[in-house]
């Protein structure tokens, strides 16, 4: 699946507790773990589905994109 061009994922590492929920449930394998925290491995695959954002229990993930493009 092609990703969106203008999407950004912001991860607030100080709030991330490394639960891995975002990584596991990302349908396009955008996220991964490093030093116990989530990070953006490959933003080009991101479809801005926002599943990582709504499932992050710690308010650590924000998905930013231009909604008009969706």
């Amino acid at each position: 699946m092609a990703g969106k061009s203008n999407v950004k994922i912001h991860i607030k590492t100080e709030w991330c507790k490394g639960c891995v929920i975002c990584v596991e449930y990302c349908p396009t394998d955008v996220l991964a773990m490093r030093n116990g925290k989530a990070y953006v491995k490959d933003i080009t695959k991101c479809t801005a589905c926002e599943l990582c954002e709504i499932r992050c229990p710690d308010f650590a993930i924000t998905v930013l994109y231009d909604k008009s493009e969706k």
């Binding site: 709030w15 507790k17 490394g18 954002e53 709504i54 992050c56 229990p57 710690d58 308010f59 994109y65």
Partner: peptide, 24 residues
């Protein structure tokens, strides 16, 4: 994105709950 910040007391974060707890 959803603007959670409008509704939360940001200075009380991070949440007290364990890693992986679904309460958040």
């Amino acid at each position: 994105m959803f603007e959670y910040e409008k509704y939360i007391r940001k200075n009380k974060f991070p949440l007290v709950w364990c890693s992986g707890c679904g309460d958040g």
